[in-house]
Amino acid sequence: MRRFSAWYGGHQVLQSIDLDIPEHQVCAFIGPSGCGKSTLLRWVNRMNDSIAGARAEGSLALHGSDLLGRGVDVVALRRRVGMVFQKPNPFPKSIKDNVAFGARLHYRLTRADLDELVEKALRAAALWDEVKDRLGSPALGLSGGQQQRLCIARALAVDPEVLLMDEPCSALDPRSTASIEALIRQLRSNYTIVIVTHNMQQASRVSDTTAFFFEGKLIENGTTDLLFTSPTQKQTEDYVSGRFG
C-alpha cells in the first residue's frame, strides 16, 4: 500500500501509510487502541464499504492489482482475502453449515465433496477431533475458543490467499489463545496472515514481521525480532516495553 489514508466522515483515521506485507508470512499490527489498525485491516477486504461515510485515498494493492477502485468486485476480493473477527461470530446454524457456508456460495459441490471440504477445513483449524462426532449440532454450543477456530475454519474453507485476523484472541481464555497461536504458526506456510493484536508477547510469538501504528501513522515496520529488540523509534521502544498504550 502506498500513501494510504482513510476517513470516517470528516475524521481522518489513517495518514499516508506505506507498507508492504510479504507473502506467506505472518505480519502483526500493533499499537494502542484507536490508532486505526482495525480500520486498515477492514480496508484490505473492503469491509468498510458498508459503513456510511467511510472513505479512503491512496493505493492499496494485492499482487499488484488495485483494491480500492469502483470496479473492484468485492465479492471476488473477499473470497481471496478472508477475515476473522475479534469476537467469534458463528452463524446460528450447525457446525457443518457454518464451515460449508462460504463454499456453498462460491461453488456447486456434491455432497461428498462438501463433506470432504468440511473435514479438511476443520482439520486445518485443528478443530476436527473435537467436533467430528457432532457436526450437526449448533455452533453456538461450542466454547469461545472452539467458536473462534470454527470461524477460522469457515474462512479457510473458501480457500483464501490472505487471512486477516482482528484481535482473534482478545475474547478468549489463555488455553484457547495458545491453541489459536499454534494454529496461526501452522497456517503460515500456505497463507499470508495479517494479525492485529494488543498482546506484545503474542506478536513476538507468532509473527515474522511487525508494524507499529500510532495515532493513524505507521511508525515502524520490520522483522519482529528486530522491532522488539532494537527499535529505531523512541515511541516504538516505549510501547513495546510497556510504558504506554
Binding site: 469491509m47 471476488a76 473477499r78 477475515m83 461470530n89 469457515r154
Partner: peptide, 13 residues
Amino acid sequence: PQSLRDGSLALGS
C-alpha cells in the same frame, strides 16, 4: 447482531 452480517460478507457473500 452486525457481527453476523460482517462474518458473512467477509466470506465473500
